[in-house]
């Protein structure tokens, strides 16, 4: 079967229409989880089937698509999904955050600030922030309906009691516009402040759980905390060893068996952009020549 046999962006028009209706409802009620008829996608659950369906429903032939996985454009997941839409939609793709109109992401928000008109699509494994505290779906829905969110703070309380601080480092719960408590997908809590007041449209797709939720542009998003243990966005206390950036989220890479390690930007586009602009880090290949 040739690639032309597929409809534009793989899904048929009725399915995309159904997803768009869910997206519109999600945008109208920021943070609310809208059920949708999630489809089987030609990839395993956990690879971003929710994000892919949302992206498919949003793409137009003029769009420029960027896909990142943990901030990187060149990992298996990112490359596979990007090629999937190259083949089935024929859209242009890019690794540059600024040039992209639709960005599908797993576990990161790009370092480069997003702008109006861009769409950020998150892949969500478990959309329900209360799930690990309350296993009953009927009960969690009721809790959202009645704004009974005390339980969310029990989780944070347990963190402090056990670790002396709020140890939740990713999928850190947020409250949207003072109403719905939302799981921001497993982004590091370093990225939480970027959720709020963001000019871009942020869409969250959970394929296995059949839920879509959204943040319209410039939505107020507050990370939950205690008065005496306020929220802190944390990152490794280093600068990037390749581009020298001190303010970006870092991955730690073990480089040999003797315990040597390096810290590099998890956002590859951001890092290469800075290197191209002449920034150098501790271990940059060129740093010796320059010095």
């Amino acid at each position: 079967m040739s690639d032309d046999a597929y409809n534009f962006a793989y899904l048929d028009e009725q399915t995309k229409r159904m997803i768009r209706r869910a997206l519109l409802k999600a945008l109208a009620i920021p943070g609310y989880q809208v059920p949708f008829a999630s489809r089987e996608m030609p990839m395993p659950y956990g690879w971003g089937t929710g994000g892919v369906q949302v992206t498919a429903a949003c793409l137009t032939p003029d769009d420029v698509l960027k896909v990142i996985d943990q901030g990187a454009d060149d990992t298996t997941n990112a490359v596979s999904i990007r090629r999937f839409f190259q083949r089935t939609a024929g859209v242009a793709t890019t690794e540059s955050t600024a040039e992209a109109t639709v960005i599908q992401t797993r576990h990161r928000i790009p370092e480069t600030p997003l702008t109006e008109g861009q769409i950020l699509v998150y892949q969500v494994p478990i959309p329900e922030p209360l799930r690990f505290l309350e296993p009953r779906e009927t009960e969690t829905r009721k809790m959202h309906e009645l704004e009974e969110y005390g339980l969310m703070h029990v989780k944070l309380y347990e963190d402090i009691a056990r670790h002396g601080e709020i140890a939740t480092a990713y999928a850190y719960p947020v409250k949207v516009e003072g109403r719905y408590v939302m799981d921001p997908s497993p982004i590091p809590k370093f990225d939480n402040p970027k959720l709020s007041d963001n000019p871009a449209i942020q869409l969250f797709g959970a394929g296995r759980e059949s839920r879509i939720y959204a943040l319209p542009p410039y939505t107020q998003v507050v990370s939950l905390d205690f008065e005496d243990h306020p929220f802190r966005a944390s990152k490794a206390d280093h600068a990037c060893d390749l581009c020298g950036a001190a303010e970006s989220y870092l991955d730690e890479v073990i480089t040999d068996d003797a315990g040597s390690r390096m810290f590099v930007c998890s956002d590859t586009d951001f890092c290469t952009g800075r290197q191209a602009a002449g920034h150098r880090g501790r271990l940059s290949p060129l740093s010796k020549e320059i010095a």
Binding site: G150, V154, I160, R162, F226, E227, D228, H229
Partner: peptide, 27 residues
């Protein structure tokens, strides 16, 4: 009881449910 939550968390849940947001005082 919530069997997966510490004794302090169990007692504190109702306090947090009615709006307690100060860890030290809850504890």
């Amino acid at each position: 009881l919530r069997m997966g939550v510490s004794a302090g968390g169990n007692v504190g849940e109702r306090l947090m449910g009615v709006g307690g947001r100060h860890y030290g005082r809850i504890r």
